[in-house]
Nucleic acid binder design. Structure first.
Lengths: 188, 188
DNA sequence: GTCTATACCTTGATAGAC
DNA sequence: GTCTATCAAGGTATAGAC
Protein backbone atom coordinates (compact mmCIF):
# COMPACT_ATOMS: atom_id res chain seq x y z
CA UNK A 1 0.00 0.00 0.00
CA UNK A 2 1.58 3.18 -1.22
CA UNK A 3 1.85 6.26 0.93
CA UNK A 4 -0.84 8.65 -0.15
CA UNK A 5 0.76 11.94 0.65
CA UNK A 6 4.07 11.94 2.46
CA UNK A 7 4.30 15.70 2.38
CA UNK A 8 1.01 16.05 4.23
CA UNK A 9 1.98 13.39 6.75
CA UNK A 10 5.22 15.22 7.49
CA UNK A 11 3.37 18.49 7.88
CA UNK A 12 0.80 17.00 10.25
CA UNK A 13 3.44 15.25 12.34
CA UNK A 14 5.59 18.37 12.51
CA UNK A 15 2.66 20.39 13.85
CA UNK A 16 1.91 17.68 16.37
CA UNK A 17 5.54 17.68 17.53
CA UNK A 18 5.75 21.47 17.77
CA UNK A 19 2.60 21.48 19.84
CA UNK A 20 3.69 18.69 22.14
CA UNK A 21 7.42 19.36 22.68
CA UNK A 22 8.29 22.58 20.85
CA UNK A 23 10.10 23.34 17.59
CA UNK A 24 13.60 22.92 19.00
CA UNK A 25 12.78 19.60 20.65
CA UNK A 26 12.13 17.47 17.58
CA UNK A 27 14.42 16.36 14.77
CA UNK A 28 14.17 15.33 11.14
CA UNK A 29 15.21 11.89 12.32
CA UNK A 30 12.16 11.65 14.60
CA UNK A 31 9.87 12.56 11.73
CA UNK A 32 11.45 10.20 9.20
CA UNK A 33 11.64 7.35 11.71
CA UNK A 34 8.00 7.74 12.78
CA UNK A 35 6.73 7.83 9.20
CA UNK A 36 8.97 4.99 8.06
CA UNK A 37 10.88 7.03 5.50
CA UNK A 38 14.45 8.29 5.44
CA UNK A 39 15.89 11.58 6.58
CA UNK A 40 16.52 12.65 2.97
CA UNK A 41 12.87 12.14 2.02
CA UNK A 42 11.85 14.72 4.60
CA UNK A 43 14.44 17.14 3.23
CA UNK A 44 13.06 16.55 -0.27
CA UNK A 45 9.65 17.91 0.78
CA UNK A 46 10.93 20.55 3.20
CA UNK A 47 14.51 21.52 2.37
CA UNK A 48 15.19 23.19 5.72
CA UNK A 49 13.62 22.96 9.14
CA UNK A 50 12.72 26.64 8.95
CA UNK A 51 10.68 25.99 5.80
CA UNK A 52 8.93 23.14 7.56
CA UNK A 53 8.13 25.36 10.53
CA UNK A 54 6.84 28.09 8.24
CA UNK A 55 4.58 25.69 6.37
CA UNK A 56 3.13 24.43 9.64
CA UNK A 57 2.15 27.96 10.56
CA UNK A 58 0.85 28.76 7.08
CA UNK A 59 -1.34 25.68 7.06
CA UNK A 60 -2.69 26.70 10.46
CA UNK A 61 -3.58 30.08 8.99
CA UNK A 62 -5.47 28.38 6.18
CA UNK A 63 -7.21 26.12 8.65
CA UNK A 64 -8.37 29.09 10.71
CA UNK A 65 -9.71 30.79 7.58
CA UNK A 66 -11.64 27.62 6.77
CA UNK A 67 -12.92 27.55 10.33
CA UNK A 68 -14.25 31.08 9.95
CA UNK A 69 -16.11 30.19 6.77
CA UNK A 70 -17.50 26.95 8.13
CA UNK A 71 -18.86 28.52 11.31
CA UNK A 72 -20.07 31.80 9.79
CA UNK A 73 -23.69 30.66 9.60
CA UNK A 74 -23.87 29.45 13.19
CA UNK A 75 -25.25 31.46 16.08
CA UNK A 76 -22.73 33.57 17.99
CA UNK A 77 -22.83 31.26 20.98
CA UNK A 78 -22.29 28.26 18.73
CA UNK A 79 -19.34 30.03 17.12
CA UNK A 80 -17.82 30.64 20.54
CA UNK A 81 -18.31 26.98 21.44
CA UNK A 82 -16.75 25.88 18.16
CA UNK A 83 -13.76 28.11 18.87
CA UNK A 84 -13.34 26.75 22.40
CA UNK A 85 -13.67 23.26 20.96
CA UNK A 86 -10.52 23.75 18.87
CA UNK A 87 -8.54 23.93 22.14
CA UNK A 88 -10.16 20.94 23.69
CA UNK A 89 -8.05 18.28 25.28
CA UNK A 90 -8.50 14.76 26.49
CA UNK A 91 -6.13 12.11 27.80
CA UNK A 92 -4.80 11.25 24.33
CA UNK A 93 -4.62 14.78 22.98
CA UNK A 94 -3.14 17.50 25.06
CA UNK A 95 -1.32 19.53 22.45
CA UNK A 96 -0.93 23.19 23.26
CA UNK A 97 -1.98 25.79 20.70
CA UNK A 98 0.47 27.21 18.17
CA UNK A 99 0.30 30.69 19.69
CA UNK A 100 1.62 29.32 22.97
CA UNK A 101 4.15 26.96 21.41
CA UNK A 102 5.69 29.60 19.17
CA UNK A 103 5.65 32.44 21.67
CA UNK A 104 7.42 30.48 24.41
CA UNK A 105 10.34 29.60 22.11
CA UNK A 106 10.11 33.03 20.45
CA UNK A 107 13.75 34.07 20.84
CA UNK A 108 15.01 30.67 19.78
CA UNK A 109 13.13 30.63 16.47
CA UNK A 110 13.87 31.97 12.97
CA UNK A 111 12.46 35.48 12.67
CA UNK A 112 10.53 34.43 9.61
CA UNK A 113 8.50 32.02 11.69
CA UNK A 114 7.69 34.48 14.45
CA UNK A 115 6.70 37.10 11.89
CA UNK A 116 4.26 34.81 10.11
CA UNK A 117 2.94 33.74 13.50
CA UNK A 118 2.12 37.34 14.35
CA UNK A 119 -0.27 37.31 11.40
CA UNK A 120 -2.10 34.23 12.65
CA UNK A 121 -2.37 35.71 16.14
CA UNK A 122 -3.92 38.92 14.78
CA UNK A 123 -6.32 36.91 12.66
CA UNK A 124 -7.55 34.96 15.68
CA UNK A 125 -7.69 37.99 17.95
CA UNK A 126 -9.63 40.05 15.41
CA UNK A 127 -12.14 37.29 14.88
CA UNK A 128 -12.77 36.80 18.61
CA UNK A 129 -12.99 40.57 19.12
CA UNK A 130 -15.61 40.83 16.39
CA UNK A 131 -17.57 37.88 17.76
CA UNK A 132 -17.66 39.43 21.21
CA UNK A 133 -18.61 42.88 19.93
CA UNK A 134 -21.52 41.46 17.96
CA UNK A 135 -22.57 39.27 20.86
CA UNK A 136 -22.56 42.18 23.25
CA UNK A 137 -24.63 44.31 20.85
CA UNK A 138 -27.14 41.47 20.62
CA UNK A 139 -27.25 41.08 24.40
CA UNK A 140 -25.86 37.55 24.08
CA UNK A 141 -22.54 38.16 25.85
CA UNK A 142 -22.09 40.42 28.88
CA UNK A 143 -18.82 42.14 29.76
CA UNK A 144 -17.67 45.54 30.99
CA UNK A 145 -14.65 46.35 28.86
CA UNK A 146 -13.52 46.79 25.28
CA UNK A 147 -14.19 43.68 23.19
CA UNK A 148 -10.45 43.68 22.30
CA UNK A 149 -9.60 43.30 25.96
CA UNK A 150 -12.17 40.57 26.57
CA UNK A 151 -10.84 38.78 23.50
CA UNK A 152 -7.34 38.83 24.95
CA UNK A 153 -8.67 37.51 28.23
CA UNK A 154 -10.47 34.58 26.63
CA UNK A 155 -7.62 33.70 24.27
CA UNK A 156 -5.09 33.75 27.10
CA UNK A 157 -7.42 31.62 29.24
CA UNK A 158 -7.54 29.02 26.48
CA UNK A 159 -3.89 29.19 25.43
CA UNK A 160 -2.49 28.82 28.94
CA UNK A 161 -5.41 26.60 29.93
CA UNK A 162 -4.16 23.77 27.73
CA UNK A 163 -0.65 24.40 29.06
CA UNK A 164 -1.49 24.35 32.74
CA UNK A 165 -3.63 21.25 32.21
CA UNK A 166 -0.37 19.36 31.63
CA UNK A 167 0.77 20.36 35.10
CA UNK A 168 -2.54 20.29 36.98
CA UNK A 169 -4.77 17.87 35.06
CA UNK A 170 -7.53 18.14 32.48
CA UNK A 171 -10.27 18.90 35.02
CA UNK A 172 -8.57 22.25 35.49
CA UNK A 173 -9.22 22.97 31.83
CA UNK A 174 -12.90 21.96 31.78
CA UNK A 175 -13.42 23.95 34.95
CA UNK A 176 -11.81 26.94 33.26
CA UNK A 177 -14.23 26.76 30.32
CA UNK A 178 -17.14 27.03 32.75
CA UNK A 179 -15.50 30.09 34.28
CA UNK A 180 -15.13 31.77 30.91
CA UNK A 181 -18.80 31.26 30.15
CA UNK A 182 -19.89 32.40 33.58
CA UNK A 183 -17.99 35.66 33.15
CA UNK A 184 -19.72 36.18 29.80
CA UNK A 185 -23.10 35.88 31.51
CA UNK A 186 -23.82 32.48 29.94
CA UNK A 187 -24.36 29.33 32.08
CA UNK A 188 -27.54 30.78 33.51
CA UNK B 1 38.20 41.20 40.10
CA UNK B 2 37.21 37.68 40.90
CA UNK B 3 33.87 36.23 40.00
CA UNK B 4 31.76 36.31 43.11
CA UNK B 5 29.52 33.36 42.53
CA UNK B 6 29.75 31.55 39.24
CA UNK B 7 27.21 28.99 40.30
CA UNK B 8 24.60 31.66 40.96
CA UNK B 9 25.38 33.42 37.67
CA UNK B 10 24.88 30.18 35.76
CA UNK B 11 21.62 29.54 37.56
CA UNK B 12 20.30 33.03 36.82
CA UNK B 13 21.32 32.89 33.19
CA UNK B 14 19.84 29.43 32.74
CA UNK B 15 16.50 30.65 34.06
CA UNK B 16 16.65 33.65 31.78
CA UNK B 17 17.36 31.42 28.79
CA UNK B 18 14.61 28.93 29.63
CA UNK B 19 12.16 31.80 29.91
CA UNK B 20 13.22 33.49 26.69
CA UNK B 21 13.87 30.54 24.34
CA UNK B 22 12.99 27.36 26.15
CA UNK B 23 15.05 24.60 27.80
CA UNK B 24 15.88 22.80 24.55
CA UNK B 25 16.96 25.99 22.78
CA UNK B 26 20.02 26.88 24.83
CA UNK B 27 23.33 25.09 25.28
CA UNK B 28 26.10 24.83 27.81
CA UNK B 29 28.26 26.63 25.28
CA UNK B 30 25.92 29.64 25.28
CA UNK B 31 26.08 29.84 29.06
CA UNK B 32 29.85 29.44 29.31
CA UNK B 33 30.48 31.87 26.45
CA UNK B 34 28.17 34.52 27.91
CA UNK B 35 29.71 34.29 31.37
CA UNK B 36 33.27 34.16 30.05
CA UNK B 37 34.08 30.75 31.47
CA UNK B 38 34.59 27.39 29.83
CA UNK B 39 32.13 24.63 29.13
CA UNK B 40 33.74 22.38 31.77
CA UNK B 41 33.24 25.02 34.46
CA UNK B 42 29.51 24.90 33.91
CA UNK B 43 29.58 21.10 34.15
CA UNK B 44 31.52 21.40 37.40
CA UNK B 45 28.63 23.29 39.03
CA UNK B 46 25.82 21.44 37.27
CA UNK B 47 27.01 18.01 36.10
CA UNK B 48 24.10 17.49 33.69
CA UNK B 49 21.64 19.77 31.97
CA UNK B 50 18.79 18.03 33.74
CA UNK B 51 20.31 18.94 37.12
CA UNK B 52 20.63 22.54 35.96
CA UNK B 53 16.99 22.60 34.85
CA UNK B 54 15.90 21.10 38.15
CA UNK B 55 17.85 23.66 40.16
CA UNK B 56 16.26 26.49 38.17
CA UNK B 57 12.82 25.22 39.12
CA UNK B 58 13.80 24.59 42.73
CA UNK B 59 15.15 28.10 43.10
CA UNK B 60 11.90 29.45 41.65
CA UNK B 61 10.01 27.48 44.30
CA UNK B 62 12.14 29.04 47.00
CA UNK B 63 11.63 32.47 45.48
CA UNK B 64 7.86 32.03 45.52
CA UNK B 65 7.94 30.96 49.17
CA UNK B 66 9.94 34.10 49.94
CA UNK B 67 7.40 36.15 48.00
CA UNK B 68 4.59 34.72 50.13
CA UNK B 69 6.38 35.65 53.33
CA UNK B 70 7.35 39.10 52.17
CA UNK B 71 3.84 40.03 51.06
CA UNK B 72 1.94 38.35 53.88
CA UNK B 73 1.46 41.58 55.80
CA UNK B 74 0.13 43.57 52.82
CA UNK B 75 -3.53 44.14 52.09
CA UNK B 76 -5.18 41.60 49.81
CA UNK B 77 -5.32 44.03 46.92
CA UNK B 78 -1.66 44.88 47.39
CA UNK B 79 -0.83 41.18 47.41
CA UNK B 80 -2.67 40.73 44.14
CA UNK B 81 -0.79 43.66 42.65
CA UNK B 82 2.53 42.28 43.85
CA UNK B 83 1.68 38.94 42.24
CA UNK B 84 0.75 40.57 38.94
CA UNK B 85 3.95 42.59 39.17
CA UNK B 86 6.04 39.41 39.03
CA UNK B 87 4.76 38.87 35.47
CA UNK B 88 5.37 42.40 34.36
CA UNK B 89 7.10 43.07 31.12
CA UNK B 90 8.73 45.97 29.41
CA UNK B 91 10.78 46.37 26.27
CA UNK B 92 13.94 44.93 27.84
CA UNK B 93 12.29 42.15 29.78
CA UNK B 94 9.69 39.97 28.15
CA UNK B 95 10.48 36.62 29.67
CA UNK B 96 7.56 34.27 29.94
CA UNK B 97 6.82 32.60 33.25
CA UNK B 98 8.24 29.18 34.16
CA UNK B 99 4.81 27.55 34.15
CA UNK B 100 4.37 28.47 30.50
CA UNK B 101 7.94 27.70 29.48
CA UNK B 102 7.97 24.25 31.07
CA UNK B 103 4.46 23.23 30.06
CA UNK B 104 4.95 24.04 26.37
CA UNK B 105 8.04 21.83 26.12
CA UNK B 106 6.49 19.31 28.54
CA UNK B 107 6.92 16.16 26.42
CA UNK B 108 10.46 17.12 25.45
CA UNK B 109 11.70 17.49 29.04
CA UNK B 110 13.07 15.07 31.65
CA UNK B 111 10.21 13.74 33.74
CA UNK B 112 12.02 14.85 36.86
CA UNK B 113 11.72 18.46 35.75
CA UNK B 114 8.03 18.31 34.91
CA UNK B 115 7.28 16.59 38.20
CA UNK B 116 9.01 19.23 40.28
CA UNK B 117 7.28 21.87 38.18
CA UNK B 118 3.90 20.42 39.10
CA UNK B 119 4.74 21.27 42.71
CA UNK B 120 5.48 24.90 41.92
CA UNK B 121 2.28 25.21 39.91
CA UNK B 122 0.19 23.85 42.80
CA UNK B 123 1.95 26.20 45.19
CA UNK B 124 1.07 29.22 43.06
CA UNK B 125 -2.46 28.08 42.35
CA UNK B 126 -3.19 27.38 46.01
CA UNK B 127 -1.89 30.77 47.04
CA UNK B 128 -3.98 32.65 44.47
CA UNK B 129 -7.03 30.57 45.36
CA UNK B 130 -6.64 31.45 48.99
CA UNK B 131 -6.09 35.11 48.25
CA UNK B 132 -9.26 35.23 46.16
CA UNK B 133 -11.32 33.33 48.72
CA UNK B 134 -10.30 35.72 51.50
CA UNK B 135 -10.85 38.72 49.26
CA UNK B 136 -14.32 37.59 48.36
CA UNK B 137 -15.23 36.98 51.98
CA UNK B 138 -14.04 40.49 52.79
CA UNK B 139 -16.03 41.98 49.90
CA UNK B 140 -12.78 43.11 48.28
CA UNK B 141 -12.97 40.91 45.16
CA UNK B 142 -16.15 40.06 43.31
CA UNK B 143 -16.62 36.90 41.23
CA UNK B 144 -19.35 34.30 40.67
CA UNK B 145 -17.50 31.00 40.75
CA UNK B 146 -15.29 28.84 42.91
CA UNK B 147 -12.10 30.66 43.95
CA UNK B 148 -10.13 27.74 42.42
CA UNK B 149 -11.68 28.47 39.05
CA UNK B 150 -11.10 32.20 39.27
CA UNK B 151 -7.50 31.50 40.27
CA UNK B 152 -7.03 29.39 37.13
CA UNK B 153 -8.53 32.18 35.05
CA UNK B 154 -6.19 34.83 36.42
CA UNK B 155 -3.10 32.65 36.27
CA UNK B 156 -3.81 31.66 32.66
CA UNK B 157 -4.45 35.32 31.78
CA UNK B 158 -1.03 36.22 33.14
CA UNK B 159 0.90 33.22 31.83
CA UNK B 160 -0.37 33.51 28.27
CA UNK B 161 -0.50 37.30 28.57
CA UNK B 162 3.28 37.54 28.65
CA UNK B 163 3.43 35.05 25.78
CA UNK B 164 0.97 36.78 23.50
CA UNK B 165 2.66 40.11 24.19
CA UNK B 166 5.60 38.80 22.17
CA UNK B 167 3.29 38.41 19.18
CA UNK B 168 0.99 41.39 19.69
CA UNK B 169 2.95 43.94 21.69
CA UNK B 170 3.21 44.93 25.34
CA UNK B 171 0.12 47.15 25.28
CA UNK B 172 -1.88 43.97 24.92
CA UNK B 173 -0.50 42.88 28.28
CA UNK B 174 -1.17 46.11 30.17
CA UNK B 175 -4.66 46.16 28.70
CA UNK B 176 -5.17 42.62 29.92
CA UNK B 177 -4.25 43.58 33.50
CA UNK B 178 -6.99 46.19 33.46
CA UNK B 179 -9.43 43.55 32.27
CA UNK B 180 -8.51 41.19 35.10
CA UNK B 181 -9.12 43.92 37.67
CA UNK B 182 -12.36 45.00 36.07
CA UNK B 183 -13.71 41.46 36.26
CA UNK B 184 -12.78 41.35 39.95
CA UNK B 185 -14.86 44.45 40.56
CA UNK B 186 -11.82 46.66 41.12
CA UNK B 187 -11.06 49.69 38.89
CA UNK B 188 -14.18 51.44 40.11
C1' DG C 1 9.93 10.57 -4.69
C1' DT C 2 12.83 7.81 -2.00
C1' DC C 3 17.10 5.74 -1.18
C1' DT C 4 22.35 5.28 0.52
C1' DA C 5 26.05 7.60 1.98
C1' DT C 6 28.28 11.16 3.91
C1' DA C 7 29.81 15.91 5.32
C1' DC C 8 29.97 19.08 8.84
C1' DC C 9 28.64 21.24 13.03
C1' DT C 10 26.83 21.49 17.69
C1' DT C 11 25.52 19.10 21.58
C1' DG C 12 26.14 17.31 26.39
C1' DA C 13 29.64 15.28 28.86
C1' DT C 14 34.37 13.50 30.81
C1' DA C 15 39.55 13.12 32.04
C1' DG C 16 43.21 15.09 33.89
C1' DA C 17 46.51 19.20 34.47
C1' DC C 18 46.86 23.49 37.06
C1' DG D 1 37.21 26.02 40.75
C1' DT D 2 38.70 26.56 36.20
C1' DC D 3 41.31 25.16 32.44
C1' DT D 4 42.70 22.30 27.88
C1' DA D 5 41.63 18.66 25.27
C1' DT D 6 38.78 15.39 23.63
C1' DC D 7 34.76 12.31 22.92
C1' DA D 8 30.53 10.03 21.12
C1' DA D 9 26.14 11.08 19.72
C1' DG D 10 22.97 13.55 17.46
C1' DG D 11 21.70 17.56 14.64
C1' DT D 12 20.71 19.69 9.83
C1' DA D 13 21.76 19.32 5.32
C1' DT D 14 23.54 17.68 0.57
C1' DA D 15 25.07 14.61 -3.55
C1' DG D 16 24.00 11.31 -6.44
C1' DA D 17 22.05 6.53 -7.55
C1' DC D 18 17.64 4.24 -8.34
Amino acid sequence: MARLDTRQQILDLAEELIRSKGYNSFSYHEISHTLGVKNAAVHYHFPTKEVLGLEVIRSAIQRFKDFKEETASLSLEEQLDAFIQTYSINSENDKVCLVGAISVEFYGLPENMTNVMKGLTRLIHDWVTNLLAMGKAEGMFAFDMKPETKATMIITNLAAGVQIARLMGNETFSDLIKGIKTDLGLNK
